[in-house]
Amino acid sequence: MEIKNLTTEQRNPATMHIDSMSTIDMVKTINEEDQKVAVAVGPQDDKIARAIDEATKRYSKGGRLIYIGAGTSGRLGVLDAAELVPTYGIKPERAIGLIAGGKGAMYVAVEGAEDSQDLAKKDLKDLKLNKNDIVLGLAASGRTPYVIGGLDYAKAKGALTISIACVENSEIGHHADIVIEAVVGPEAITGSTRMKAGTAQKMILNMISTGVMIKQGKVFENVMIDVKPTNSKLIDRACRIIQTTTGVSNQKARDTLEKANNDVGLAIVMLKTNSDLNQAKNLLKAENGNVAEVLNK
């Protein structure tokens, strides 16, 4: 389909006169459009759940979450990858964001980069892509050549491929194992897909990456237990997490965290099972480090 015919490129009847609206009407109109995003994402729940389950299988075998995209879509992928490191204590190499044109394209558009399928293949080759990896291809328009090239290369290597677009019957969907298409409709500003389309992609990435991390045991109940307490603020947060989930005093939480060598999950297991350090380590080892699996038995 020609780009001019894509849903993301159509004019929005509700905003035809946004340039002459009062500021408050402008804000209300954009907010009304934004409320349509969650409604558009909702019908994709089954596909998002499948993406989480399939990605979890690969990630558990040492695979990586690799995001590829151009422009806003690429930046959202880089953002999701970067935020997983401090949030869930994973190594930076386990979540990687690739944007057409390289790191510099995060700030300034790189001419022609998104039009090259070969560039994506090179970027993935440089990462030594393997069959345990998960490649998430992002394109609001569903047709970016850089993303198509990346998905094709990933499929050839046996990696799991997931496409995320904001149009129906997206071109990138024909190149992916799992196809997610949240059709948010025309943007408030014609073609400005950093708006509703960007919000939809962010919501979907939030669900996929958070779901994978939950299934890795990075969350107990609804708190992050793999935060790395590397400064006083994070130590305080870690102690509060331990207090919240175990009911002990702040001092007991602090003492146990120290005994657990600043491992929040290990400290929680020690307290919840009344175990010493070695016993708690063995309990976790039996469940591949998953705190929820140990405590929900």
Rank of each mutant, 00 (worst) to 15 (best):
T273M: 14
A70N: 01
R11W: 09
Q251N: 12
V108K: 10
K218C: 07
D45N: 11
K196G: 04
T161N: 08
A159H: 13
A176D: 01
A267F: 07
A286E: 15
M16E: 15
D46Y: 08
A95D: 01
I30A: 04
E9L: 11
G89N: 05
D53S: 13
H17Q: 15
P145V: 08
A109W: 06
S209F: 01
I225E: 04
E187Y: 10
I235W: 06
D53G: 02
V212W: 03
C166G: 09
K297W: 09
A159N: 12
D34Q: 03
T87P: 02
Q44M: 13
G149P: 02
T144N: 01
A200Y: 01
A165P: 04
K125M: 14
V264D: 00
N278W: 09
A40P: 09
G102C: 09
E258D: 15
R143V: 00
E33Q: 12
N282L: 14
L136A: 07
I225G: 04
T56W: 00
A81F: 01
S249D: 07
V167F: 11
A109V: 13
Y146E: 01
M106T: 03
E168W: 08
R64Q: 04
Q35T: 13
I18V: 13
T199R: 05
N261W: 03
Q201V: 03
A154F: 07
M270P: 08
T246V: 05
D255Y: 07
M270G: 13
K128I: 13
Q243K: 13
I225M: 07
K36T: 15
N31R: 09
K196C: 03
K157F: 07
R64I: 02
M106W: 02
R143N: 11
V110R: 11
E32K: 07
N206D: 14
T230S: 15
L129W: 09
G289Q: 10
R237E: 00
I24G: 03
E9Y: 12
N296D: 12
A51P: 04
V108I: 15
V294H: 10
G112L: 03
I90N: 02
I24L: 15
E293W: 14
P145L: 06
N231T: 10
A197K: 04
S163K: 03
V248Y: 11
A95F: 03
L84V: 00
P86A: 11
K36Q: 15
S20P: 03
S192F: 09
D236V: 08
